[in-house]
Design a protein around this nucleic acid. Structure first.
Length: 374
DNA sequence: CTTCAACCTGTAAG
DNA sequence: ACTTACAGGTTGA
């Protein structure tokens, strides 16, 4: 297995804080070898492949800082994987410079490190389903759900280190193979219905936009719609409210200025920024969705949270979503009370429990319990 | 239009 | 052992 390097500082990217901290849910951490592994689809190649990443934790003096990647796929060249990873990690965005920029505008950033937290550019369909699963849920279980979707409804990709890898299922595969009851038996709870209905609507959207893949549907709406229209469309799926829609916009459709507002963001927005809307401002927000003719948004939106979203985007600028990622991590870390400064919660998946899935619905423990790193 | 209970499940904490 | 609270929300009344 040959590893290739991509130069990037740990200040700009820390795999441990990006790959398993609530943004992506299908990276597997091999604790023993300190590797991160997943299956990915590179546009232009029809088959999924396996990517392996690693990053040294300690930097020696005057050493270059880099991440390393290896891969397994019939036709990939190292350069196309490198290009893919560069865009997956959005390395064209200078995180250190952005942090400086936020610090200038916002004193709250004064003593904050980036922790190497970046916003990823993920596959939108997978992002949508993952974040539908995220509602009223914890990272450990979301991770488990995403892996189970792949294992039960995706395609077998191949093995690495004795571990079987699967693709993330398309909407078509979900409709073909999964039922609501089966997903419930797999532990999805009330989200089972959301997933089935979303997959069904996605198939309809493919017809409506005259395309044949999930990805093309997202490409279409992202290319032709404004942010408000994109969100309106996303909230047309069952189980998708403003927060999930914004997560898809930010992490799936690279709308970098979008700030998904959840309970943690709401907390620090009020506490640290004193953000509170007046009645007039709330009325104005409602009015804006009326005049733009966005009935679903109007129905699902919470004007108070939408106000917070607007204010934070206004404050932080074009990469506000990235700023949110850093503060969010800090907020969750401190509320969890179990992380040291500079480290986010880390979770692992053990190697031996993943394999060996038979056709019967058994699932449950494919992921080990969350582990907090000291 | 706002408010609020209900919703599945796994796990840590009482 | 047994109970309760909570987790990056959304829905429907």
């Amino acid at each position: 297995m040959k590893f290739h390097r991509i130069l990037v500082s740990r200040e700009a990217l820390k795999l441990e804080n990006v790959l398993q901290a609530g943004q992506a849910f299908r990276w597997i951490w091999d604790e023993k070898n300190d590797l991160y592994m997943t299956s990915i689809l590179i546009p232009g190649h029809d088959k999924y492949g396996i990517v392996i990443l690693r990053q040294k934790r300690i930097k020696k003096e005057q050493d270059d800082e880099y991440i390393e990647f290896a891969f397994k796929h019939p036709t990939w060249e190292y350069s196309c994987v490198e290009n893919y990873l560069k865009q997956y990690f959005r390395l064209e965005v200078d995180l250190v410079a952005q942090l400086e920029n936020w610090t200038l505008k916002d004193p709250n950033f004064l003593n904050i490190s980036s922790q190497g937290i970046r916003i990823l550019s993920q596959e939108p369909w997978e992002t949508l389903i993952s974040f539908i699963c995220s509602s009223n849920n914890n990272i450990s279980r979301i991770t488990k759900m995403c892996h189970n979707l792949s294992t039960y409804y995706g395609n077998k990709i191949g093995k690495f280190n004795d571990m079987e890898f699967y693709s993330f299922p398309t909407s078509e595969q979900l409709i073909e193979k999964a039922t609501e009851q089966e997903l419930r038996d797999l532990g999805f709870g009330y989200r089972a219905k959301y997933i089935i209905e979303t997959a069904r609507k996605m198939i309809q959207d493919q017809k409506r936009f005259n395309v044949s893949t999930d990805q093309e549907v997202f490409f279409h709406i992202s290319k032709n719609f404004s942010y408000e229209k994109i969100r309106e469309h996303l909230m047309g799926y069952t189980g998708v409210g403003p927060k999930v829609a914004d997560c898809v916009c930010l992490m799936g459709l690279h709308l970098d200025h979008i700030v998904p507002v959840d309970v943690h963001v709401t907390r620090f927005a009020k506490r640290d920024y004193n953000i509170a809307a007046t009645k007039t401002e709330l009325a104005k927000i409602r009015e804006s969705y009326n005049s733009l003719n966005l009935p679903i948004t109007k129905k699902k939106i919470n004007p108070e949270l939408d106000f917070i979203r607007r204010k934070l985007t206004e404050k932080w600028g074009p990469f506000a979503g990235w700023a949110q990622g850093i503060l969010f991590s800090k907020e969750v870390g401190s509320t969890a009370g179990a992380t040291v400064a500079g480290n986010v919660k880390k979770r692992k998946r053990s190697l031996d429990e993943v394999d060996n899935v038979d056709s019967s619905i058994k699932m449950k423990k494919s992921i080990t319990a969350p582990k907090i790193e000291a």
